[in-house]
Design a protein around this nucleic acid. Structure first.
Length: 832
RNA sequence: GCCCCAGUAGCCCAAUGGCAGAGGCAGGAGACUUAAAAUCUUCACAGUGUGGGUUCGAGUCCCACCUGGGGCACCA
């Protein structure tokens, strides 16, 4: 055998992946096996891989992810479900624009050329997709509906504009959502992100914070725990109270009420000072004239810090006194009001009551500025004022008026009651999640379908005028980032009549974050040609939620959170009847090389095309799936595509040795091989259900080994059991190695396609063994083994075990305390 | 600092609380061959990161720790 694709003669005994690939690809094109019938005659199942971004050709990561998704799609088809497994492209985005600037071209040229390249590669890779549903988010036919959905959000008040300090990437010259800032740097290019105050569009995702959190419950067990944990973390729910402090009047400055958020209202009596975020307007409003210049200087120094510096936890505490005092509503104490950058303008209310004894940050600040520390919860630990370590645990309230003597939890409840009675506070829940900033100052995205009219304000583009197409006359340098959208330069495009008053007006020149495009594409796949609506709700309700979603963990928060949000809004709009888009999620691992992610700078990249040329599509697919459990990383340095190719050839060769006719009754075949076949089918079904694809491949390897042995030194190639085993091999292999499986299937005398052969029925009677080996333990240690009938009773087995010489010798006359019997496999004798 | 995940043979990995080993890679031996490749057969190697606990019995469950990976983080 040879795994060399250039083998010149290809006789019946030589496995040539290149020949097999060339042979079957056109046959499959004609068969159209992967378009769902979609008539309700079979149960519908939807399996989806996160759609690719068209950045050049497919890479090793695509090869892994799509191999996994295809296993599920192909398995579900074998089980007889009507399977929807579509493919499309997330085709708006920066790289296309940057390429266009560089080559003085239009982004669409680069984008659609790459899509064609990737599509051809996907076909070669034998992804069992329904190509008739192919979509691209940059097609006007698609983004028309992205705009339509935006307008529905706008009508509901879920899309709005506000002035706000935003994350700004100085390199890409655009704003970024919080989710796109990683450790203070741009997720895309790595540049340190700065803050800029701009008027921008937002989606009100915070309104859905609670539902995004609660609706994760039923996903447990179907989504990876770490993804759920990351989303929980990101949403950052915390329960506590709002408490309002009055800032006393000072000279010309009037009194003011300022509310704080605290998770520890029980420690109200321990507040010894008050802090407002230095960069919030509130600080400037409160400061007395005497302290104003110090605050201004301080604010300047704070603004000069990058996010990365500011987020360092090692920093010394800094701040300035505002000259004002806040009155504690519970005990009337006057607390000095400070402005400091350790309080965030963006979180909670941008102001806090500082309880240095029981909060480390407050304690650090108190020690830096010699402010008092008062312990109000006795945790049994040393006084934080002395140790410098705040105590945050359980304890008994002290120095706290009527809260004294209560435990922490009781005191929290009681304190909330007290401020509620006073009207100075209430129970509340606070979230870390911010609204989703969706405007981008870039060209290659979905235009925001809003017209700005000097007299009517923000006017939605009427639905019948959608799509608002991108202007076609901009290219090359016209697209270079300038800090404002390049669309502004297309004056013909920008200047329009106001749809309401017909006066002169201008289009919004920002485009949408591409994550908006990808937040609903899984719905469009159900009905991709529709010109009436983004999708047919009835059809969507029939197909969704997606039964199995497959993609990388890098989208644990971004795409998955946004899509969940979109689905909930669409539910509220009555457009879908479910609230979670993805019932099950599989995060495939990364493909590494030598322990590290592949990268140009490390020079450890592996080219997918070269691997396919060298080992064949099936060997690469099999290697990806066999290497480890799907969610684990695959280190390409640790795996053996040539080993996979060898196995495939071995499986394929079975075809030549099966000499019985198709359709022969296997009942008369060799029983032990039949047992292996049916055991393999049963185990594989179980393993596939649990995404243990790597183990399924190990099982089919065993089946191939057993079949080879039966042919060479057992029942022989004419035995019907050998045919049965080879056919089962072809069907199981069809999930992982479609070309080899198809060719084997043909060699076994069947017409194409094995993909539609159906999962063989398991004969339960073949799974039962006549006799099994029972293990006899004394005190957990194995002392003997017995061949016993599989249906032996507990009593019989106990008697047998107690009677063995080994057991008698080990017991050496000791009394028996108890005997554990798990018929027919185990007996454990426990001596007294 | 908080949260999540993982540590089994030289390597990748299996193992409903019940004999630690299914499969593969790399390695050794044999058959076939003039020889090699390919093919077929066969062999060896760990007591499951560490320390406790629960149990008749723990790789598996619980606690603590160590190591590695990931997420969040002056989030009140």
């Amino acid at each position: 055998m040879s795994i060399n694709p250039t083998t010149e003669e290809s006789d019946a005994g030589t496995y040539s992946f290149a020949d097999i690939e060339a042979k079957w690809l056109p046959v499959w094109e004609k068969l159209d096996t992967f378009t769902p019938v979609d008539d309700g005659s079979r149960e519908r199942r939807y399996v989806l891989d996160m759609f690719p971004y068209p950045s050049g050709d497919l890479h090793m990561g695509h090869a892994e992810a799509f191999a996994m998704g295809d296993v599920v799609a192909r398995y579900w088809r074998q089980l007889g479900y009507d399977v929807l497994h579509p493919i499309g492209w997330d085709s708006f985005g920066l790289p296309a624009e940057n390429a266009a600037i560089k080559h003085n071209a239009h982004p669409s040229e680069w984008t659609y050329a790459n899509i064609d390249t990737q599509a051809a590669s996907f076909k070669r890779y034998a992804i069992s997709a329904d190509w008739s549903r192919r979509l691209h988010t940059s097609d006007p036919e698609y983004y028309r509906w992205t705009q339509w959905l935006f307008l529905r959000f706008f009508e509901k008040g879920l899309a709005y504009r506000k002035d706000h300090p935003v994350n700004w990437c100085p390199k890409d010259q655009t704003v970024l959502a919080n989710e796109q800032v990683v450790n203070g740097a741009c997720e895309r290019c790595g540049s340190p992100v700065t803050k800029k105050s701009l008027n921008q569009w937002y989606f009100r995702i915070t309104e859905y914070a609670d539902r995004l959190l609660e609706d994760m419950e039923p996903l447990a067990g179907h989504w990876p725990e770490r993804v759920l944990a990351m989303q929980r973390n990101w949403i950052g729910r915390s329960e506590g109270a709002h408490v309002t402090f009055t800032i006393e009047a000072d000279g010309d400055l009037p009194a003011a009420d300022v509310t704080v958020f605290t998770t520890r209202p029980d420690t109200l009596h321990g507040a010894t000072f008050f802090v407002v975020a230095a960069d919030a307007d509130l600080a400037a409003d409160l400061v007395t004239p005497e302290h104003a210049s110090a605050l201004a200087d301080y604010r300047e120094s704070v603004n000069a810090l990058s996010d990365i510096e500011r987020q360092s936890t090692e920093r010394e505490k800094t701040g300035v006194f505002t000259g004002r005092y806040a009155v504690n509503p519970l005990n009337g104490e006057k607390l000095p009001v400070w402005a400091a950058d350790y309080v965030l303008a963006d979180y909670g209310t941008g102001a806090i009551m500082a309880v240095p004894a029981h909060d480390q940050r407050d304690l650090d600040f108190a020690r830096a500025f010699n402010l008092p520390v008062r312990m109000v919860v006795d945790t049994g630990e040393e006084d934080p004022a002395l140790t410098g370590k705040a105590t945050t645990g359980e304890g008994t309230l002290v120095n706290s008026g009527e809260l004294n003597g209560l435990g922490k939890e009781q005191a929290i409840q009681r304190a909330i009651e007290l401020v509620s009675e006073q009207g100075t506070g209430e129970r509340t829940v606070n979230y870390r999640l911010r609204d989703w900033l969706l405007s981008r100052q870039r060209f290659w995205g979905t235009p925001i379908p809003i017209i700005h009219c000097p007299s009517c304000g923000e006017v939605p583009v009427p639905d019948e005028q959608l799509p608002v197409r991108l202007p076609s006359n901009l290219r090359g340098e016209d697209l270079a980032p300038k800090g404002t959208s390049p669309l502004a330069a297309a004056t013909d495009w920008v200047n329009v009549e106001c749809p309401q008053c017909s006066g002169p007006a201008t289009r919004d020149t920002d485009t949408m974050d591409t994550f908006v495009d990808s937040s609903w594409y899984y719905l469009r796949f159900v009905d991709p040609e529709s010109t009436e609506a983004p999708f047919d709700s009835q059809k969507v309700n029939e197909w969704l939620p997606v039964g199995q979603y497959v993609g990388g963990v890098e989208h644990a928060i971004l795409h998955l959170l946004y899509s969940r949000f979109f689905t909930k809004v669409l539910f509220d709009l009555g457009l879908v009847n479910f609230t979670e888009p993805f019932a099950a999620l599989l995060n495939q691992g990364q493909v590494l090389n030598g322990g590290k992610a592949m990268s140009k700078s490390l020079g450890n990249g592996v080219n997918l095309g070269e691997q396919l040329d060298r080992y064949g599509v099936d060997a690469i697919r099999l290697t990806m799936v066999f290497a480890s459990p799907p969610e684990d990383d695959v280190d390409w340095a640790d795996v053996s595509p040539s080993g996979s190719a060898k196995f495939l050839a071995r499986a394929w060769r079975l075809g030549a040795d099966v000499v019985s006719e198709p359709g022969v009754d296997p009942a008369s075949g060799d029983r032990s091989l039949r047992s292996v076949t049916h055991r393999t089918l049963a185990d594989a079904a179980d393993l596939l259900k649990n995404n243990k694809f790597n183990v399924v491949i190990a099982k089919v390897m065993e089946l191939v080994n057993a079949t080879r042995k039966a042919i060479d030194s057992g029942a022989g190639g004419a035995d019907p059991a050998v045919r049965e085993a080879a056919e089962a091999t072809a069907v199981i292999l069809s999930l992982f190695a479609p070309y080899t499986a198809e060719d084997l299937w043909e060699r076994l005398g069947h017409p194409a396609s094995v993909a539609a052969a159906g999962w063989p029925a398991v004969d339960e009677s073949l799974l039962v063994q006549d006799t099994v080996t029972a293990v006899v333990q004394v005190q957990g240690k194995v002392r003997d083994r017995l061949e016993v009938p599989a249906d032996i009773s507990e009593d019989e087995l106990r008697e047998l075990a107690l009677g063995t010489a080994q057991v008698q010798r080990t017991l050496a006359g000791r009394d028996i305390r108890t005997v554990i019997v798990r018929a027919p496999k185990l007996v454990n004798i426990v001596p007294a």
